[in-house]
Simulated scan of single mutants.
Amino acid sequence: MLPAGKIPPEKLREIVFNRLGARGERVIIGADLGVDAAAIDFGETVLVASTDPITGAGEGIGFYAVHVNANDVATFGARPKWFLASILLPENSDEAILSGIMEELHRSAAKLGVAIVGGHTEVTPGLDRPIVVGTMLGEVQREKLVTSNGSKPGDAIILTKWAGLEGTSIIASERAEELEGAFGRGFVERARKFIEMISVVEDALTANEVGVHAMHDPTEGGIANGLHEMADAAGLGFRVYAERIPIREETLEICRFYGLNPLALISSGALMIAAPRDGVDDILNALGEKGINASVIGEFVEDPGVRVIVENGEERPLERPESDELWKVV
């Protein structure tokens, strides 16, 4: 049986990556471990395409669909421009549900300057909640394309914002009554508003202007899985330091309450950047000028067998999460 969440890497290799249709002559970057978008040669520019479903959220599902897919495109250095959405509704849904999702999609896309150019809508038997599957297309000048496998040994790992932002917001929305009883309404409202920080488009485009080797947004499986995915893509290992990983107090409290690991909680809104050591200060300064919090949390190492976290002076393996912590509570 497959666990909830992302399909394990070994199963992707066994079942998925050996069944990818015809070879595309203009494909610069295709499907692979740790790769969240495709890059297709269009001459002077490169088309970047990404697709992701939103399955774990009720409220804000249209907002998440636009921003999560825009984030993937932006990690390649591309500006998101065109969006398609497939909306699947449970039986007995009324028109207000579809209207609400479309309003969220419209407002979110308009804010990013993205046009919604197509999609599909249907009522689907067997669902217990709406699902939105988004596809985002973006464009970047060829010389500014950032590849997912570009991390190099010795690169600093920079993390923008905080770990677990999306997961915190979803849990605060889905378990609001329970959390209000434990922490108060103000706490829950602050946690729910983490959704407002979910976009990394400005983070990524700002860092790419300075110069980076690779970027990745840690979604399912959180920071821990994101580190493994970046390392997978480049064939590297990593060493990170627990005390350097920024986590908001609301995330820590919610994770303690439900017994969750904040490093394995879906973390859209944060951005991982692999950067040459001599460019770190420039990147941090550029992000800081935009009001974007950023921290150096570790480095990539040459040995792919070294994937560790240092905590209280002790080094231990940082395990790849089997599934996202979100699924334990929603």
Rank of each mutant, 00 (worst) to 15 (best):
L2S: 12
P3R: 07
P3T: 04
A4C: 07
G5H: 05
I7M: 14
R19M: 06
L20C: 09
G21T: 06
L33M: 09
G34H: 02
G34V: 03
V35C: 09
V35W: 01
A39E: 07
D41Y: 07
G43Y: 05
E44P: 10
V48R: 07
V48K: 09
V48P: 05
A49F: 08
A49T: 15
S50M: 08
D52E: 15
I54D: 01
G62E: 03
V66G: 04
H67I: 13
A74Q: 06
T75W: 05
F76S: 14
R79E: 15
K81P: 06
K81N: 11
L84T: 14
L89A: 04
L89M: 12
E95R: 13
A96I: 11
H106V: 10
L112S: 10
G113I: 10
E122I: 00
T124K: 14
P125M: 08
R129D: 05
P130L: 09
P130I: 04
V133E: 13
M136R: 00
L137F: 15
E139I: 12
E139W: 13
V140K: 02
Q141A: 13
L145D: 01
L145Y: 07
V146N: 04
S148T: 07
S151W: 00
K152R: 15
P153T: 03
I158P: 00
L159S: 02
G164M: 08
E166Y: 06
S169A: 15
I170M: 12
I171F: 02
E174S: 15
A176T: 13
E177M: 10
L179Y: 03
A182G: 07
G184L: 11
G184K: 11
R185L: 14
G186A: 13
E189M: 14
E189D: 10
F194P: 01
M197N: 12
V200W: 04
E202G: 03
D203F: 05
A207I: 07
E209Q: 14
E209M: 12
V210R: 11
V212K: 01
H213R: 15
H213S: 15
H213F: 09
A214M: 03
A214S: 15
D217Y: 11
P218Y: 03
G221R: 00
A224M: 04
G226I: 04
L227Y: 01
E229Q: 14
M230G: 03
M230K: 08
A231I: 03
D232F: 14
L236V: 06
L236W: 00
F238H: 00
A242V: 08
A242F: 13
E243C: 06
R244W: 03
I245M: 02
E249C: 02
Y258C: 01
L260N: 00
P262W: 03
A264T: 00
L265S: 05
L265A: 05
I266W: 03
S268N: 15
A275Q: 02
P276H: 12
V280F: 01
N285H: 12
A286D: 10
A286V: 06
G288T: 11
K290L: 02
K290E: 08
G291S: 07
G298V: 01
D303G: 05
V308W: 06
I309N: 02
I309C: 02
E311P: 01
G313S: 06
G313K: 01
E315Q: 07
E315L: 05
E315C: 00
R316D: 10
R316Y: 08
L326Q: 00
W327A: 12
